[in-house]
């Protein structure tokens, strides 16, 4: 594996009496895509802000390319691109003016900004909209423009804070393709998400974060195989009553969970379980392979998180 390009060690952050980060440790190799997944309020956005040097931390250290971030000051951000959680495009400017203005914040020469803007609009499939005002773009297009804007300085590290939240499937797939393309070109990606499929599709490695700590960290496949059996069956009763009240499933599966009206069974061989329930007309069932979402819920619990980050 490449040496770590981005390294976080024992990062702590308090807001008042509330500990938001309680010793976050992870490392991202150059050219890797790392996904930080966690429920609302887990510390994802705070971690991303800390990596940009925009929040004073209460302990720990961040290194970027081997150098201590705190000593790099604003220079660290010259090699970073940031796609924030909430779009903050300039509403008074056109698509291309947004890119030009942003390029000047990096102190880039005008000719380079113009050239890159054209290339980036092409790359994000926005070429035909260069002279359009921002408000005429759909949500997905604004998101793509935000990504193009984050690339204006040809960053080595791209930080994406929930890049596809609120977008339709078509828009998400286009963005995923482009992010994979960037990774192939050698850009290091760090993304936060609470969509498990997004992490599974994009990331080389995933860190599951909750209550300000990394709970587990591995490849998406590795996280699944080390934490839960490969197969899943979900059982529900048509009448909404408790499924399998006598706990018959326990003789066939090693791990199961009751969530509301649903019984979720994990196992490598689920055929005896299915054989018992499939023919029963009182039951609805769903068989599927174990996913990152199962691991995530297994590790972080199923409580609702209403807290906003």
């Amino acid at each position: 594996m490449n040496p770590a390009f981005l390294e976080l060690r024992a990062l702590h952050k308090r807001y008042g009496g509330r500990e938001v980060l309680r010793g976050v440790d992870f490392a991202v190799a150059a050219g890797e895509c790392f996904a930080l997944v966690g429920p609302n309020g887990a510390g994802k956005s705070t971690t991303v802000r800390a990596i940009q040097g925009l929040t004073p931390t209460d302990g720990g250290e961040i290194r970027l390319g081997g150098r201590v971030l705190a000593e790099m000051g604003r220079a660290a951000r010259a090699d970073m691109g940031v796609v924030p959680q909430t779009d903050n495009l300039d509403p008074d400017f056109t698509v291309q003016e947004n890119l030009w203005t942003y390029g000047r914040y990096f102190g880039l020469p005008k000719a380079l900004i113009r050239q890159r803007s054209t290339e980036l609009l092409e790359f994000m499939a926005l070429s035909g909209y260069a002279a359009q005002p921002i408000h005429s773009l759909s949500g997905g297009m604004q998101r793509r423009l935000t990504i193009a804007r984050a690339l204006i300085n040809a960053p080595k590290l791209l930080l994406l804070d929930e890049p596809t939240t609120g977008l339709d499937p078509q828009a998400r797939h286009l963005i995923w393709q482009r992010l994979r393309e960037l990774r192939r070109q050698g850009t290091t990606l760090l993304l936060t998400t609470h969509y498990m499929d997004e992490a599974e599709r994009l990331a080389d490695r995933v860190g599951i974060i909750d209550h300000g700590r990394i709970l587990a960290e591995d490849s998406p496949r590795g996280l699944i195989t080390t934490n839960i059996p490969a197969g899943v069956v979900e059982l529900r009763r048509v009448d909404g009553a408790l499924p399998d009240p006598q706990d018959l499933h326990r003789q066939w599966v090693s791990l199961s969970e009751r969530v509301g009206d649903t019984l979720i069974c994990y196992g490598t061989d689920l055929s005896p379980l299915l054989a018992h329930f499939v023919e029963d007309p009182a039951y609805r069932w769903l068989q599927r392979p174990a996913s990152l979402e199962d691991v995530f819920l297994h590790l972080t619990g199923r409580d609702l998180r209403e807290e906003t980050e």
Binding site: R74, R77, P84, T86, N88, L89, D90, Y105, A150
Partner: peptide, 14 residues
């Protein structure tokens, strides 16, 4: 409302 400062702070601007 526009979060322009946040956008600027993601660049080398201080």
């Amino acid at each position: 409302a526009q979060r322009t400062y946040a956008a600027m702070l993601a660049t080398p601007l201080r």
